Amino acid sequence: MTSILVVEDNPMNMELVAYLLKSNGMEVTQTFDGLEALEMLKKNSFDLILLDIQLPGMDGMEVLKNIKENPTLRHMSVVALTAHAMQGDEAKFIDAGCVGYISKPLDVSTFIGTVQSFMNKGA
C-alpha cells in the first residue's frame, strides 16, 4: 500500500487531502507542523511527502532543506502543496528539491492522478 505523509496546517485542507488519498487506497499519516514531520521521518518511511510550504514555526522550505540534507531522508520524494501560485514558484520548489508542485485550492478531479505521477519521481 502506498504510504504518504501529509504536512498541512489547515484542518480543512488536511481533511480533504486525507479523504481523497484514503478513498484511493493510500495510507495517510498526518501532521500539522514541520518539526513533527521531521520526527516522523526519523521513525517511518513514506512513498511520498505532500508538504505545505506555509507552515507555522518551521516553514515548508526549511523542512525540505532538512530532508534533502539528511543522507537517510534525501531519497524521499517531496511534493510542494501550496497556495503559492506566483510565476516562478514551481521552479523555486523544484530547484529546492521537490519532485513536483500542487497548487491550492486543489483540483479534486485531477489530484489523485497528479499525486500518482509524482510517486518515486525523485528517488
Score class of each variant (00 low, 15 high):
4 I>P: 09
5 L>G: 02
6 V>W: 00
7 V>S: 06
9 D>K: 04
10 N>Y: 10
14 M>G: 10
15 E>D: 14
18 A>M: 05
19 Y>A: 09
19 Y>G: 13
22 K>D: 04
23 S>Y: 08
23 S>D: 05
24 N>D: 02
25 G>W: 00
25 G>P: 06
27 E>H: 15
27 E>L: 12
27 E>R: 11
30 Q>S: 14
32 F>S: 15
32 F>G: 14
34 G>F: 14
34 G>C: 07
35 L>Y: 13
35 L>E: 12
36 E>H: 14
38 L>I: 14
38 L>E: 02
39 E>M: 07
39 E>G: 11
42 K>V: 08
42 K>R: 15
44 N>E: 15
45 S>M: 10
45 S>P: 15
46 F>Q: 06
46 F>M: 09
47 D>P: 13
47 D>E: 13
48 L>F: 14
48 L>S: 06
50 L>N: 08
52 D>R: 08
53 I>K: 03
56 P>Q: 02
61 M>F: 14
62 E>N: 13
62 E>K: 13
64 L>E: 00
66 N>I: 00
70 N>Y: 12
74 R>D: 00
75 H>P: 12
75 H>R: 05
76 M>L: 09
78 V>A: 04
79 V>H: 04
82 T>C: 06
84 H>A: 01
85 A>H: 14
86 M>I: 09
86 M>F: 14
88 G>P: 09
89 D>K: 13
91 A>C: 00
92 K>P: 05
93 F>I: 03
93 F>D: 00
94 I>M: 04
94 I>Q: 03
95 D>G: 01
96 A>I: 01
97 G>I: 00
101 Y>P: 09
103 S>M: 07
103 S>D: 05
103 S>C: 07
104 K>N: 08
104 K>Y: 04
105 P>E: 11
105 P>Y: 10
106 L>I: 09
106 L>H: 08
110 T>Q: 13
112 I>E: 06
113 G>W: 02
114 T>F: 10
114 T>N: 10
115 V>E: 05
115 V>D: 07
118 F>D: 02
118 F>Q: 05
119 M>V: 01
119 M>C: 02
119 M>E: 08
120 N>V: 03
120 N>L: 03
121 K>F: 08
122 G>T: 02
123 A>V: 05
123 A>T: 03
